[in-house]
Simulated scan of single mutants.
Amino acid sequence: MFNWLDRLENRRLLRLLLLFALGWVGVQLLQYFAYVLLIFLFAAILAFLLNYPVRWLKRYLPHGFAVTAVFLGTLALLIGLGITLGLAIIGQFQELITSLPSQIDLWIDSLERMEQFLEQWNLEINFQQLESELRNFALAGLQFGFGKLQAIFALFVGGIIVAVITFFMLLEGERLWQYLLSFLPDPWRDRVPQALERNFLGFFSGRLLLSLFFGTGTFIVLLVLRAPYALALAAIAGGFDLVPGIGSTIGISLVCLILLPKGVALSLQVLISCILLQQVEENILMPRVMRNSVNLNPVVLFFALLVGATVAGIVGVFLAIPITGTIVSLWDLKALQAGSGDPPQSSS
């Protein structure tokens, strides 16, 4: 009788044990240092992106002056966008939250009419539980609106921390990075930076570009269709699009649900237009933008998303894919990659 243990070579068994141990250690670290990792991750991505103009300016200026010029210019641009676009989005969110109770009443009226219509066909369905959940949702939205100042202050403090870390990464990060790499064995000193750059920096920069496209496209669609809260709803769609796999679908569903009290026709028009945008993003832009980034089997991708959400919530959702991609790249686990070919044939 075939014994599958005979197929496990010592090297393969060791790799599986190391992979399991690394995964367990990664989960524990992610749970404990989730906020710190997120701060440093955002700072590393910004430093990586800003390093390109810094390299160009270093042809004409010393390193310190080039870093300072690029950092201050980027900071001025972000502050300008925050004062103009950011305040406009916050204002529309405030209007949306203020009108939330009246929209909930319209949804409840629609449910009551649907319930009466079904009763005519001898279909008795009680929507009271759903109506209660909708009212709780409205109350939670109002509480979020009243507590928004505290959230904005925390976001502002986090942004300052990210900015400071980004500046020092640009200024002194190269020496620290080379020092950390010196602890790795020689073959890994090249593989680790390549895997991290491709899976972390490539993933987040690619997702950011795709989300900007989807958010901008949604904003144009909402303007053309004269939908209310265009900036706020486009920000919702673009923000959810950062989550790979199902993010854009969730964003589209929320936008159409919010617009439903404004008219079924408007909601359907937005739904169809956003689905077309989603198809353009996934079938035309994504293969080009993400071709040098994370390469994971879709089943592994969704599994990583669920594990990340369970372990560290929203932080885990954003970190799960690049962490999994880095592990797959470093250990060359081709069976977990997308388009890895036919599965290996087993022999008895």
Results as ranks from 00 to 15, higher is better:
F200G: 02
A140F: 04
L170Q: 02
I83L: 06
G245Y: 02
L96T: 03
R11V: 05
G341A: 06
L176I: 14
L75S: 14
E124P: 13
I236G: 03
G215T: 07
E282K: 02
A151R: 00
L38C: 10
V164F: 04
F168R: 00
F20E: 05
F2H: 09
V221D: 08
R189Q: 15
P322T: 05
L333K: 12
Q143L: 09
A76D: 09
K58Q: 15
R7G: 14
I272D: 11
I45M: 02
L306Y: 13
G206F: 08
E197V: 01
R11G: 05
E119V: 00
C274G: 02
Q150R: 10
S267A: 15
A237N: 13
L268S: 13
G73T: 01
V36R: 06
F156G: 12
A232L: 12
L18I: 07
L87Y: 04
I89V: 15
L242Q: 05
I165N: 09
L14S: 14
S347V: 08
F219W: 15
S348T: 12
E124L: 02
Y179T: 07
D186R: 07
V67F: 06
I152A: 10
S346F: 03
Y35G: 00
P261E: 12
L5N: 11
V162R: 05
L176F: 08
S99Q: 15
I90H: 00
I246M: 05
Q269R: 14
L18M: 11
T84A: 09
G217E: 11
G86K: 13
G141C: 04
Y52W: 04
A338F: 09
V192N: 09
R207P: 09
L296A: 08
P344K: 04
L61T: 01
L8I: 14
V264H: 08
S132A: 14
G202W: 03
W4H: 13
I321S: 00
W56L: 12
I321A: 11
F303G: 00
L46R: 06
E281I: 09
H63F: 11
